[in-house]
Amino acid sequence: MRASLIQIAVDDAESVVSRRRRVAGLVREQSDSDLVVLPELWPVGAFAYEQFETEAEPLDGPTYDALSKAARDAGVWLHAGSIVERAGDGRLYNTALVISPAGELAATYRKIHRFGFDEGEAVLMSAGDSLTTVELPEQTLGLATCYDLRFPELFRGLIDSGATTLVVSAGWPERRRAHWTLLSRARAVEEQAYVLACGTAGTHAGVQQAGHSLVVDPWGEVVAEAGPGEQVLTVDLDPRKVAETREQFPALKDRMLGIRPARG
């Protein structure tokens, strides 16, 4: 399976409408890939808190409309990053969208762990309450968003739900870039799964972004890493490697805590 991570530069001077159009064009250029991944809150910027209310949109809003057409034109599965979703009850969520090659909305994931320590996203957004996996022809994706990366129990729940590739869409700040790499590798090692960690470049409301999107294999080895600027990172994944890794080093079979009760 060929995956392309589009590390979008979010510039405060670029309008949401212009960025949406530009990103749709970048998605269309990835027709040789099977899966395309975008970062967290790229239309508005993960730290642009003052714009969350004005730029909030429904699931079938302008971002979905533009990217569903792009996914269909390219014939790819598209993790469209996340948007500021306005739910029917008026609440806001940081919601990831997965779009099929037919342009249909295949899955959504509302971010569970909100960043901000009682400020910013943590008070402006409501928390999601369920895990999301998506069945692709060769892989099962488990979805996570940015700050979720710091909570290993979420990822253990995803592999218990069948995930073999963990997709992390993020707007991760440069000042904590070392954590970004460390935690992405740790989640891959713990879950013996691929990790596709796609972040943004540029600046969100004055917060410099880390860039350095990366793909980590089930042994925790970084197989591809982007630089600090806007870039498309493309890598071929071996769907057999997850099962092979878990068979060669069956650590997951030795779990003693947090094991799901047997069905009987």
Rank of each mutant, 00 (worst) to 15 (best):
G229A: 15
E40L: 11
S4G: 11
P62V: 05
A3Y: 06
V76P: 14
P58R: 10
C198K: 00
R177F: 13
C198F: 00
T245A: 15
V37F: 07
T132M: 07
P239H: 00
S161D: 15
W180M: 01
R246E: 00
L141R: 05
A71P: 01
R177K: 14
G229L: 12
A96Y: 04
S184P: 00
G116M: 01
D60Y: 10
A201G: 12
D12W: 10
T145L: 04
Q248S: 14
W180I: 00
G206L: 05
G258W: 04
T200R: 12
F249Y: 11
C146G: 09
A48I: 04
D236I: 02
E153R: 15
A80W: 04
G142L: 03
W172I: 01
P218D: 06
E50L: 13
V223L: 08
R110N: 06
Q139G: 10
T203H: 14
D65A: 15
A163W: 06
L124Y: 03
A107L: 06
D236R: 06
G61M: 00
F115R: 11
E191P: 08
D254H: 13
G61E: 03
A127P: 10
V232Y: 00
L97R: 03
P137V: 06
P250C: 07
Y147S: 11
A96P: 04
P62N: 03
T63A: 13
L97C: 03
L149G: 14
M1D: 12
G120D: 10
K111N: 15
S130N: 10
R114C: 09
S169M: 12
A197W: 00
E50A: 09
E50D: 15
V36G: 09
E221C: 10
P62R: 00
L183C: 11
T164F: 06
A127E: 08
A197C: 01
A96W: 01
L105Q: 00
A66Q: 08
T133F: 02
V44M: 03
G142T: 07
D129N: 15
G162K: 07
T133H: 01
A71V: 02
A80V: 05
A186E: 15
A107M: 04
D129E: 12
V168D: 09
A48M: 09
L26T: 04
E244P: 13
E104C: 05
H179F: 09
E40R: 09
A106I: 03
Q139W: 15
T200A: 15
G264Y: 15
W77L: 05
P58S: 14
R246T: 01
P152C: 02
G88S: 00
D12E: 15
G220E: 07
R28G: 07
V16G: 12
Y93W: 07
R91F: 02
A106W: 02
L252C: 06
Q30C: 11
L233V: 13
A24G: 05
P218V: 04
G116D: 05
E50Y: 10
E225L: 06
